[in-house]
Design a protein around this nucleic acid. Structure first.
Lengths: 156, 156
DNA sequence: AACATCTTTAACGTTAACGTCAAAGTTAAG
DNA sequence: CTTAACTTTGACGTTAACGTTAAAGATGTT
């Protein structure tokens, strides 16, 4: 690791071929963290070169940004984030089960099942928003009181 | 631990004398957690009885509720919370200095100083709210797509 | 006084989310 | 072809935030 960005291989700006180091420096995460996220299933297993080196795509980077936001801004655990970001993988799996399932009733039941999960997360998110709005209101109230005081002080 | 609330000692409803078990059940934290918070300096060392038992006050409970909010709603680490609560106390200190100050110009300057702290916290809260709203929208989008699919399945 | 409950401190265990190090293979560059 | 830089997979180490157990003392009840 000596050059932070473009040291290796390809001169081509092909959109879906970043080395682990490039992804690391662009996301602000470490290489270890990227491998760890793959290990625990947060990131779909990256493609490999013939030499077995990982190659990441733009979508991977997008996903990593999402993960960062969920983790740092919202304080979710990686486990919770995996549930929240169940988009790609879950959608694939469910769609597979869909194709193999001929009974429409069963399909609808499967949909409802994932909906329950999503609604649980929605509730949690709403709770957090409510708490944050409360906190925000109380902080603004303080600022307002200070403004009042300031005005009184200046009228003297 | 057999009775959750009033098993021990005092019949008197004195406002600032709760056992560790009472505080635990009222805050939803564990006794271990209360001792731990004291250990790491999040909570001021509780008063003791002659028998060396901890006794908590109303203010302690208030502070614990604050800590819980910071931790669960905002996902702050205990270390960050200690800093945040310190700035709260710092504000108190500044307020004290404020009362002793007679010069109006100085008073206004001091007000502005605490406002900076408050606005920093407000910014953080706003960031978190924005992130949560984004997440909420994406979850609702998924639900909508599922509803679409459900409709298509039923029309067949 | 005996007893069941509560409390104390001390110390070791646990889980998540990585950090760090080692041994070995890969790649671009000289 | 050699070499420096990059990568791989283990595997063990670390920190935060507690959980759990143990040994001993305290308290109110019988």
């Amino acid at each position: 690791m000596v050059d932070t960005s473009e040291s290796q291989i390809e001169m081509d700006k092909h959109p879906s071929c970043f080395t682990i180091e490039q992804v690391a420096s662009r996301t602000g995460l470490t290489r270890r963290t990227l491998r760890y996220y793959e290990e625990v299933g947060l990131l779909p297993a990256a493609e490999r070169t013939e030499g077995n080196y990982r190659r990441y795509s733009e979508e991977d980077i997008q996903r990593l940004e999402h993960i960062k936001a969920y983790k740092n801004l919202l304080g979710f655990s990686l486990h919770d984030i995996r549930v929240l970001l169940a988009t790609d993988q879950e959608r694939e799996v469910i769609k597979e089960a869909y194709r193999q399932e001929t009974d429409i009733e069963t399909k609808i039941a499967q949909l409802a099942q994932t909906d329950v999960l999503i609604e649980q997360q929605l509730q949690l998110v709403d709770q957090k928003i409510a708490g944050l709005l409360e906190m925000k209101a109380s902080l603004q109230e303080r600022l307002a009181r200070h403004a009042e005081t300031r005005k009184r002080l200046q009228d003297s």
